[in-house]
Amino acid sequence: EETVVIALYDYQTNDPQELALRRNEEYCLLDSSEIHWWRVQDRNGHEGYVPSSYLVEKS
């Protein structure tokens, strides 16, 4: 079962390993094994790492 997370803030990045976030957008959580950086996928299928503190699990 996939976990959906919501971005609390915008996040901009130039790092190809990371993914930009848009506030209030939903993302699919792929990997939360790292404490500070979670791997997520956006609705267009793009994947990357984002700061975990910018996300909240959708209830």
Rank of each mutant, 00 (worst) to 15 (best):
D15C: 09
K58W: 03
R23N: 05
Y27E: 01
E18F: 09
A7T: 00
E26W: 03
E26Q: 07
L30Q: 09
R43P: 08
N14E: 15
E57W: 05
T13D: 07
L21W: 02
A7G: 04
I6L: 08
C28Y: 13
L30I: 13
L30S: 03
S32G: 10
G45H: 07
R39E: 03
Q12S: 13
L55C: 08
E34L: 13
R22C: 10
D31G: 04
Y49F: 11
R39V: 07
D42I: 00
W38G: 01
L21R: 00
Y49Q: 14
E47W: 04
S33F: 04
S32K: 12
K58S: 10
A7R: 00
I35L: 11
R22F: 14
N14S: 11
A7W: 00
R22H: 06
Y54E: 00
N44Q: 14
H46V: 10
L29E: 00
H36I: 15
E26Y: 03
Y54H: 12
H46I: 10
Q41V: 09
N14R: 11
D15V: 13
S52Y: 04
V4I: 14
R43S: 13
Q17S: 11
D31L: 02
E26M: 05
K58H: 08
K58T: 05
E26S: 09
N24A: 10
R39H: 06
E34R: 15
D10Y: 03
S59D: 13
E25Y: 07
W37D: 03
R23S: 09
Y11N: 00
S59W: 13
G48I: 02
Q17N: 13
T13C: 08
V40E: 00
T13Y: 02
W38E: 01
W37Y: 12
E34S: 13
P16V: 10
E1G: 06
T13H: 07
G48P: 00
Q17D: 09
W38P: 03
L21I: 10
G48L: 03
L30P: 01
Y9D: 13
W37S: 15
L8W: 03
Y11Q: 01
L19R: 02
H36T: 13
R43E: 13
L30T: 10
D15H: 09
A7H: 01
G48K: 01
E2R: 06
H46R: 12
V5Y: 11
V40K: 00
H36E: 13
W38I: 02
H46Q: 12
V5P: 01
C28I: 15
Y27N: 02
K58G: 07
G45I: 02
G45F: 05
D42K: 03
T13N: 05
S53R: 14
Y54C: 10
W37N: 10
E25K: 06
E47S: 11
V40D: 01
C28S: 13
G48D: 00
L19P: 03
